[in-house]
Protein backbone atom coordinates (compact mmCIF):
# COMPACT_ATOMS: atom_id res chain seq x y z
CA UNK A 1 0.00 0.00 0.00
CA UNK A 2 1.18 3.42 -0.81
CA UNK A 3 2.58 5.16 2.18
CA UNK A 4 1.18 8.33 3.63
CA UNK A 5 -2.47 7.40 3.28
CA UNK A 6 -3.37 9.09 6.54
CA UNK A 7 -3.36 12.84 6.91
CA UNK A 8 -4.22 13.68 10.49
CA UNK A 9 -4.73 16.99 12.23
CA UNK A 10 -5.34 17.18 15.92
CA UNK A 11 -5.62 20.04 18.33
CA UNK A 12 -6.83 20.61 21.82
CA UNK A 13 -9.22 23.27 23.06
CA UNK A 14 -9.44 23.29 26.84
CA UNK A 15 -9.74 19.64 27.74
CA UNK A 16 -11.30 18.46 24.51
CA UNK A 17 -9.20 17.26 21.63
CA UNK A 18 -10.46 17.30 18.07
CA UNK A 19 -8.98 14.85 15.59
CA UNK A 20 -9.54 15.23 11.88
CA UNK A 21 -8.23 12.65 9.49
CA UNK A 22 -8.27 12.31 5.76
CA UNK A 23 -7.52 8.84 4.46
CA UNK A 24 -6.51 8.10 0.90
CA UNK A 25 -8.46 5.08 -0.24
CA UNK A 26 -10.61 4.20 -3.29
CA UNK A 27 -13.53 2.85 -1.21
CA UNK A 28 -14.88 0.76 -4.09
CA UNK A 29 -18.30 -0.72 -3.35
CA UNK A 30 -17.92 -3.71 -5.63
CA UNK A 31 -21.08 -2.65 -7.49
CA UNK A 32 -19.52 -0.19 -9.90
CA UNK A 33 -18.68 -1.33 -13.42
CA UNK A 34 -15.61 -0.49 -15.41
CA UNK A 35 -16.93 1.49 -18.37
CA UNK A 36 -14.37 0.03 -20.78
CA UNK A 37 -14.57 -3.66 -19.97
CA UNK A 38 -18.06 -3.83 -18.48
CA UNK A 39 -16.67 -5.87 -15.63
CA UNK A 40 -17.40 -5.10 -12.02
CA UNK A 41 -14.66 -3.34 -10.13
CA UNK A 42 -13.89 -5.50 -7.09
CA UNK A 43 -14.86 -4.13 -3.71
CA UNK A 44 -12.04 -2.40 -1.89
CA UNK A 45 -12.85 -0.40 1.18
CA UNK A 46 -11.62 0.39 4.68
CA UNK A 47 -13.25 -1.76 7.34
CA UNK A 48 -11.81 -0.43 10.57
CA UNK A 49 -10.33 2.84 11.72
CA UNK A 50 -8.79 3.22 15.13
CA UNK A 51 -7.52 6.23 17.01
CA UNK A 52 -5.40 5.68 20.08
CA UNK A 53 -4.47 8.42 22.53
CA UNK A 54 -1.40 7.59 24.62
CA UNK A 55 -2.04 3.93 23.88
CA UNK A 56 -5.71 4.09 24.90
CA UNK A 57 -8.40 3.58 22.28
CA UNK A 58 -10.56 6.68 21.83
CA UNK A 59 -12.28 5.85 18.56
CA UNK A 60 -13.01 2.39 17.21
CA UNK A 61 -14.80 2.85 13.93
CA UNK A 62 -16.30 0.31 11.56
CA UNK A 63 -16.65 1.53 8.01
CA UNK A 64 -18.53 0.03 5.11
CA UNK A 65 -18.35 0.57 1.37
CA UNK A 66 -20.92 3.36 1.67
CA UNK A 67 -18.37 5.73 3.15
CA UNK A 68 -17.16 8.17 0.51
CA UNK A 69 -13.93 7.79 -1.42
CA UNK A 70 -10.95 9.17 0.48
CA UNK A 71 -12.80 9.06 3.80
CA UNK A 72 -12.82 12.02 6.11
CA UNK A 73 -13.52 11.42 9.75
CA UNK A 74 -13.60 13.81 12.65
CA UNK A 75 -14.01 12.89 16.26
CA UNK A 76 -13.49 14.47 19.64
CA UNK A 77 -12.40 13.12 22.96
CA UNK A 78 -11.66 14.52 26.37
CA UNK A 79 -8.72 14.32 28.72
CA UNK A 80 -6.04 15.34 26.26
CA UNK A 81 -3.36 17.98 26.32
CA UNK A 82 -1.04 19.49 23.74
CA UNK A 83 1.91 17.30 22.87
CA UNK A 84 0.07 14.02 23.53
CA UNK A 85 0.70 11.20 21.11
CA UNK A 86 -1.96 9.84 18.80
CA UNK A 87 -1.86 6.74 16.70
CA UNK A 88 -4.28 6.36 13.80
CA UNK A 89 -4.57 3.08 11.94
CA UNK A 90 -6.87 1.48 9.39
CA UNK A 91 -7.37 -1.92 7.82
CA UNK A 92 -9.28 -2.72 4.64
CA UNK A 93 -11.12 -5.71 3.19
CA UNK A 94 -8.08 -6.83 1.22
CA UNK A 95 -5.95 -7.04 4.33
CA UNK A 96 -4.03 -3.84 3.63
CA UNK A 97 -3.40 -1.50 6.51
CA UNK A 98 -1.58 1.66 7.44
CA UNK A 99 -0.90 3.57 10.59
CA UNK A 100 0.42 6.97 11.44
CA UNK A 101 1.59 8.69 14.57
CA UNK A 102 0.52 12.25 15.23
CA UNK A 103 0.87 14.79 17.99
CA UNK A 104 -1.84 16.99 19.37
CA UNK A 105 -1.08 20.66 18.94
Amino acid sequence: MASNTIRPRAWVDGDVATVKMLLTHPMETGLRKDKKTGKKIPAHYIETIKVEHNGKMVLDGLLGPAVSKNPFIQCKFSGAKAGDALKISWTDNKGDSDSKDATIS
Binding site: L59, D60, V67, C75, F77, S78
Partner: peptide, 16 residues
Protein backbone atom coordinates in the same frame (compact mmCIF):
# COMPACT_ATOMS: atom_id res chain seq x y z
CA UNK B 1 -22.46 3.17 6.28
CA UNK B 2 -20.38 3.31 9.42
CA UNK B 3 -20.42 2.73 13.13
CA UNK B 4 -18.13 4.40 15.64
CA UNK B 5 -17.49 2.93 19.03
CA UNK B 6 -16.86 5.61 21.62
CA UNK B 7 -17.25 3.42 24.68
CA UNK B 8 -13.55 3.55 25.41
CA UNK B 9 -13.81 7.23 26.30
CA UNK B 10 -14.51 7.10 29.99
CA UNK B 11 -15.23 10.72 30.84
CA UNK B 12 -18.82 11.66 30.02
CA UNK B 13 -17.95 14.85 28.27
CA UNK B 14 -21.04 15.95 26.38
CA UNK B 15 -19.08 18.12 24.00
CA UNK B 16 -17.13 15.13 22.79
Amino acid sequence: TSSFNLAAVTEPFIKT
